[in-house]
Structures are given as C-alpha cells and as structure tokens.
Computed example of a mutant assay.
Amino acid sequence: MLGIDFQKSSKGKWPTPPFDPRFPNQNQTRNCYQNFLDYHRCVKSMNLRGKSTQPCEYYFRVFHSLCPISWVQRWNQQIMDGTFAGKI
C-alpha cells in the first residue's frame, strides 16, 4: 500500500503521496484529515514508548502534501486549546 520510494525519498523531495485504496475518490479531504490524525497518534505513541518519532515522518509528509495550510494551523491551534474534535 505504501510506496517504498516515497518512504525513503530524501528530505528535499516531496513527491505526491501514493494512492491509498481507503480513499479512492477524487476528493482527498478525508485522506488529509486521517493522515493528520495518524501523525499525531504516531508521535504520541512513540513518545510514550521513548522511541524516535522518525517513522511518523511519512504521515507528516502526506498530510502536508494534501491539506491546506490554514486547516493544519487551525487544527494545531485547537489541539493546543484542547478543543480539537478528533481522537488523538
């Protein structure tokens, strides 16, 4: 499901995210939101285990490719305020 080339690409390259069969439609709003949640869940889980958050980089790159910056800023602000509706 996840392209190996996408996961191992250099930090300067930001290719288009690979096809995700969970989101087959043209509208990628849900894909954006799900990858945002997956990133924050991954970071939280890795921090609790005391491990590196480097594996979470994939989700970060995908949601930054798909999501408008204004959405990400608003969601991050809501997380800091404790009003974010998603379960992280």
Rank of each mutant, 00 (worst) to 15 (best):
Y39G: 00
K44D: 01
H64W: 04
C42W: 04
M1V: 09
A85E: 12
G3E: 11
D20A: 11
D20W: 11
S10A: 08
N35G: 03
A85Y: 02
P15D: 10
Y33N: 12
F63L: 02
Y58N: 08
N27E: 13
P17E: 07
S70M: 12
G86L: 08
S70E: 12
N76D: 14
I69E: 15
Y59C: 03
S65W: 06
G3M: 08
F63C: 01
F19I: 15
S45V: 03
Q54F: 01
R74L: 13
K11Q: 05
Q78C: 03
V43N: 00
G82N: 06
W71C: 07
H40L: 03
P55F: 05
S52T: 08
F60W: 09
R74P: 01
Q77S: 13
R74E: 13
R74K: 15
M1G: 13
F84V: 01
S52W: 00
R30P: 00
K51L: 11
C56Y: 05
S9K: 15
C42P: 04
P21L: 11
F23W: 09
L2A: 05
S70K: 11
F23Y: 15
V72Y: 01
M46E: 13
F6E: 11
C42K: 10
G12L: 14
C67T: 11
Y58Q: 06
N27A: 11
L37P: 00
N35S: 04
P68M: 07
I88E: 02
F84A: 04
C42Q: 04
S52A: 04
G12H: 10
D5E: 13
H64M: 14
W71H: 14
P24Y: 03
C56I: 00
S9L: 03
R30G: 07
Q7S: 07
I88T: 01
G3P: 00
K8V: 08
Q28E: 09
S70A: 14
S70V: 07
R22A: 10
G3K: 05
M80G: 08
Q7P: 02
N27L: 10
F6K: 09
P21Y: 06
E57D: 12
L66T: 04
S45Q: 12
D5R: 14
F63Y: 15
G12I: 13
D81C: 01
R22F: 05
E57W: 07
I4G: 03
S65Y: 10
M46P: 01
C32H: 00
N27H: 11
C42M: 06
F60Y: 12
F6M: 09
N27I: 10
F60A: 10
T16D: 14
I69K: 14
M46A: 13
G12E: 15
Y33V: 05
T53G: 02
Q26S: 13
K87H: 07
G50V: 01
P15V: 02
P21G: 08
R61D: 07
T83R: 10
K87T: 14
G12W: 11
M46H: 03
P17T: 00
R22Y: 06
N27D: 15
Q34P: 00
F19P: 08
K51R: 13
I79H: 01
E57R: 13
P15N: 10
S9I: 05
R30C: 06
M80E: 14
V43T: 09
L2H: 06
G3Q: 04
S70L: 07
R74A: 12
L48F: 04
G3A: 09
D81A: 14
Y33K: 13
T29F: 02
G86W: 11
C67L: 11
F84C: 06
P24T: 12
